[in-house]
Design a binder for these strands. Sequence first.
DNA 1: CATGAATGAGGGTTCATTCAT
DNA 2: CATGAATGAACCCTCATTCAT
Lengths: 217, 217, 217, 217
Amino acid sequence: MEELKETREKAVRDAKRNLILDASVKVFGEKGFHETRLEDIAAQAGFSKASLYNYYEDKESIFLHLAIREHERLCDKFETLDLPKDSFQSALRTFLTVLVHEMGARFAFIAAVSNFQTGVFCGHETFGKHRETLIKQFQTAVARIQEQILRLVSQAKSSGEIRSPLSEQAITKYISSIIRGIMYEWKIKGKMGDITVEVNEILEFVCHGATGPAQTA
Amino acid sequence: MEELKETREKAVRDAKRNLILDASVKVFGEKGFHETRLEDIAAQAGFSKASLYNYYEDKESIFLHLAIREHERLCDKFETLDLPKDSFQSALRTFLTVLVHEMGARFAFIAAVSNFQTGVFCGHETFGKHRETLIKQFQTAVARIQEQILRLVSQAKSSGEIRSPLSEQAITKYISSIIRGIMYEWKIKGKMGDITVEVNEILEFVCHGATGPAQTA
Amino acid sequence: MEELKETREKAVRDAKRNLILDASVKVFGEKGFHETRLEDIAAQAGFSKASLYNYYEDKESIFLHLAIREHERLCDKFETLDLPKDSFQSALRTFLTVLVHEMGARFAFIAAVSNFQTGVFCGHETFGKHRETLIKQFQTAVARIQEQILRLVSQAKSSGEIRSPLSEQAITKYISSIIRGIMYEWKIKGKMGDITVEVNEILEFVCHGATGPAQTA
Amino acid sequence: MEELKETREKAVRDAKRNLILDASVKVFGEKGFHETRLEDIAAQAGFSKASLYNYYEDKESIFLHLAIREHERLCDKFETLDLPKDSFQSALRTFLTVLVHEMGARFAFIAAVSNFQTGVFCGHETFGKHRETLIKQFQTAVARIQEQILRLVSQAKSSGEIRSPLSEQAITKYISSIIRGIMYEWKIKGKMGDITVEVNEILEFVCHGATGPAQTA
DNA sequence: CATGAATGAGGGTTCATTCAT
DNA sequence: CATGAATGAACCCTCATTCAT
């Protein structure tokens, strides 16, 4: 009995925490970290500004928790995903489709995360304990996505499908950059593009580069 | 006489405007737009905070003028640059080397510019007249770099060196993203990497992609 | 039957009210009125913050009730106390010993009360009805202690033991100040001193002043 | 020329810093540290709230600087003061008259300082560098007054005028307590009492205690 | 009665910008 | 032109108090 109540209350609380993040993804996405006012988030979430502090330590905490949630959701998606095993290209196609599909819906926020990484972190060096671990989690979550790509690339390298002399890390890095570029583009345009087209083009470029496939001739 | 004095004074004024930008590139690069305080810039430039307003309208104006200057400098460099004509690859190598060399010295600021583009612009819709034209200039300047790449790509496509079915714009976009990715990486690491290595790797990837050159076999 | 239940419930309620005050004496003593958070008291008392409002009107009410309780307890002690009748000095010794012993255990809180008196009251002029009477009680309770001293002094004056030309009120005032001074000293040092020593010294000073007893010579 | 300007500007700045303190002594005196709003001080001083930050780091800094100034002023007064050399009593009379006269005009603030000492300091242990030294200064300044009294007492002890077996420190402590008691009394009453009367009474008590002078008989 | 959650009302502080000298 | 000083306008965050369960 008592336990049931507790779990229910825990669930409600978690739901509200998520409501706040849902509101945040919109506002942070639109305005970026600095120009976002707690009040905007509160209004969007249907809370008062002060209430947010029942759920998160402070503004930065909301941002980080959100980034973590979004990245982990994505990772979870990938872990339950059956990637085609026939070829690197089709595996990457599936992967990118899911990735862009998921990220795309939050492209603006993803862009904000990148900005946050390069703009807010660098320089800061003194954090409180809580902050410290939260940031670690954040970085881990962000890194985990890259690792998914890295894994794909590594497999393809082992199987001989990737014959590039470049290190797996370098290739992964470039793929990431390209994806982030897409997010930026959409953010600036204000809307998503066509996912299928976008993925196909990325694939084409990633697999064959610019000088391209006809090299065989 | 009078004219001479005027031109001299103009020159002095321009010199000071540039001093301010020189200071800004450092501070904006380190802290990003939002976390930069006018006072930081003033201190770095050897002025008082109030003096900055003798030379620029406001904080955003400094940022935009700086971005414009940096991008135009780069463009000027390219216009006086004799790119090798023998192959797309060697032209691109030269181009990238110069680009990364120049940008690299300001990588942190370049990262800040990207963040600014995606984080500050979007959402704003009411600008004063002055702002309006300044922003146009800024966007033009940023775009001009991309056009340099686009021109290279176009030529290579005409000459048949690029056989990718992708549009020239798409290829250009990916190359840009990769370069921006490098800037981000350096910014996060806090220092530049080895330019030659970096350029070679980019080249390798851009030209042949991941599955790579040995496709011939 | 019904009555019994009611009295029992009343007793429980009173017990809880006292629990809250027990917690408060610690927290108010350590942090003073302003820096004490209701949450600190609640935690210390094993209640939730909201529950406190079932027992007391508000923060100030807790503080006042506590001060009243502590002072009345002390007065009760004195009323059941058989002071030696042989001399002013020995009566005062017993009195001070008990006073300092009792107060001393709560020295930090006593210091907080003084601060509260001079810092919070003065200036306030609009009080609600409830507040009004509570404050009266508080002031009465604080005054009652002084009256105990006053009574001692008066008796000694009547009996000729006190030959000072000073009014009984003045002497009482000085004794109070000295006692409060001890509380402050302990509060700042963070711990009580030796009661016997302290009382003896106070006695010496109060009875003979600085120029002192040897005046006879 | 240039130097003159600088010293003048320095003087103006110092004058303004003092204006702020002048305003603060009133407000802090009336409301105490916690209930004082920066805005109150600003209004009283004829500044905007934000302007205060041109002169002092923060609220606590204003309070501490003020306390230091007041205490040092008093000390300076004493150092230029020719205390009668004929007897402890007349020296103490002059001393107390000046002390109460000076302090009295600021009695409310002096009370606030005591509250601050016991209420705000205790517990805090982590301070910034600046704070650290400022607090040291504050404590030194407060202590210096006590030392003046201690010196008087010591001399009188050496000269045999004070025959009390109590330590000089103890006597000094009691005198201080009594003075602070007066400040509290005035603060609670809302106005100063008659200085001459007050001083005479203190003297009487301090010199002969309660049982008093006629002990000779 | 107990309490988790919600919130209004502020407070201290920051900073881009303006103004007077 | 240079600058110290002044300030309006926010913003983040805190906390006593209220409310719904």
